[in-house]
Design a binder for these strands. Structure first.
Lengths: 339, 339
DNA sequence: GTGAAAGCGCTAACAT
DNA sequence: ATGTTAGCGCTTTCAC
């Protein structure tokens, strides 16, 4: 159903229908009513592309590819980006991938199809590198992309990340100052760049410290509450020692671990917990424990990613410039007691 | 810069440029390179509306108006809706309003401008009723809208909500079974429907119970962690009794309150906490306390809102049908001990 | 107050 | 392999 058909049915010209649609004052009230009636009857809605083409407006849409908007880390980032975008009159197309590669690909194609002006991309799990050919299409079409929080290596795009490696390294080193025979590590997913780098930072710290003197047991989770809980349960059940030193790769898993810990009312003579991340709630739960956490500037990171993208969108000369990789540091908060 | 200009600059026809854009195989490699070079040089990007108009595709976009995507409650809802939408090949335009009325209005106009197929709308604070005239435009254009989680009264739109009143009523009643002289209530915002109804349910329970025998002190927060913390601090500082009964209108403020509670290591002979809401973390923090919480089916609510919208979109006959208001119940979990 | 027609930027069938 | 051109659905100027 288009404007022409409506016009015919109403016995008027397309111009008149157009005037009705746009609330033009100089349409006889009777004509207007007649046209409106027909439009309702046929559930007519004007073609937005025709309107925008005709009016010469071109929209400013940016695509946002996110693995899991239900995750507080990402939803906060999305919030920041939304607010930045709103200020710049840019609209956000939200693509929630559940971390599935297939969807990332599909959504990228959709975004190209929508002729978005740019893309901010938080990948899920890393697939092998020739899986990311679909990104070349963005390159070819001059659509800037900025990676956020997680990286796909060896691709020539801008990106804004946390310096996971360094933070993890220092955090582990601090934790090891509490002498102990054994350290547990609940790692994140190794095929997510942040997970991998936290892992590598941990390993390096262990190496520098003196790997031989200390036993190390690593479990692998998926960055979510449940996995922290499950792994925590297993670890605690098998941990016969009176001391416990444990390092957990993110906030959510740390909370899960603490649930397991509290569930059985465990009690250790000495206990030290390191967490990559923090939150009000984590702080409350760790209150009486010996712990190290770190403040992750995720809002700053998100903001920066938008700024870089926006710059590229508005300054075409920038588009072909060398790509930047920006790393943010996090502040380590050491609350280990001194004994 | 349009296809015609590119064609002229490259000394080819528009058809050839179009072919290059669309990766048509039958273009001489040299021509292609020449055209691509010019496109890059002039930072050309084809007009999406012209393409879509020409190709006759009409898109399926649904607008999502959310007060605060950084809030876990809403981000979970957005996640559910995104996933539903993806299955139905519907794309989500995300509008984060910070709960500001002005932005709700602005975004609604934007969504109309984009000719979205429907809108899911979680309002911020309620303004006076003639502020919502802008929604009539949706009506006029036959664009279905579904309210989610929060209602604007007296408007003829569909909506899916929690039965805040009833849940709050029962929760309060249970809490009052613990005999006490005084009950504190940290209320949410009264110009948000959920806040108001929780308040009214609380009031009604008090009335039914026997209002005269019990002292009641109400503080008003904004549903956020910080306000729970601040109000909690004030309440605890002024509370000289050895017993404390407190009801808190949502999860986030309850966590804030607990932060205040833990900060000063308060200790009451008897303490009962009621929270409208729950979470893994809240459960952990309340572990040793006497408490009532309730499971809010926010994912179900979100899902339902999408289903209703989708039905209306695809079944125009439904559009004019009577509007539905759907209420969900939440399960109350009473963990008060029996003394 | 209404209509005719050009034009928005692109695609695709047809012609060469 | 490339060009010509009608047409996508709407807006808007100009004429009546």
């Amino acid at each position: 159903m288009n404007i022409k058909e409506i016009a015919k049915l109403a016995n008027v010209s397309v111009a008149t229908v157009s005037r009705v649609i746009n609330n033009d004052s100089k349409v006889a009230i009777t004509t207007k009513e007649k046209v409106v009636a027909i439009m309702k009857q046929f559930n007519y809605s004007p073609n937005s592309h025709a309107i925008r083409l005709s009016k010469g407006v071109s929209d400013q849409i940016v695509g946002l590819i996110v693995p899991d908007i239900g995750n507080i880390l990402f939803s906060e980032m999305v919030e920041v980006i939304s607010n930045c975008a709103e200020k710049e009159k840019i609209t956000i197309l939200l693509c929630n991938t559940n971390g599935e590669y297939e969807k990332e690909k599909k959504f990228t194609e959709l975004l190209i199809d929508y002729r978005v002006k740019g893309v901010i991309y938080i990948p899920g799990k890393y697939e092998n590198s020739n899986c990311y050919k679909f990104l070349e299409e963005l390159e070819a079409r001059n659509i800037p992309l900025v990676f956020l929080d997680r990286e796909i290596k060896n691709l020539n795009f801008d990106g804004v990340f946390l310096d996971n490696y360094t933070t993890s390294y220092h955090l582990t080193k601090e934790l090891l100052k509490k002498e102990s025979k054994k350290i547990h590590f609940i790692s994140g997913n190794l095929n997510i760049s942040s997970g991998q780098e936290r892992f590598l930072g941990f390993k390096k710290a262990l190496l520098d410290f003196d790997a031989t003197s200390i036993d190390c047991e690593i479990s692998y989770g998926d960055f979510k509450f449940e996995s922290g809980y499950k792994l925590g349960e297993t670890i605690l059940k098998n941990h016969k020692d009176k001391e416990l030193t444990i390092y957990i790769a993110n906030n959510a898993m740390a909370l899960g671990f603490l649930k397991a810990y509290k569930k059985y009312s465990w009690n250790f003579e000495k206990m030290a917990i390191g967490v990559f991340g923090t939150s009000d709630v984590l702080d409350m739960l760790l209150d009486e424990e010996n712990h190290i956490t770190c403040k992750v500037p995720n809002k700053d990171i998100a903001k920066k990613s938008f700024q870089i993208l926006f710059q590229k969108i508005n300054n075409p000369a920038q588009k072909n410039k060398k790509r930047k990789k920006i790393l943010y540091n996090s502040i380590i908060m050491n609350r280990l007691n001194n004994k």
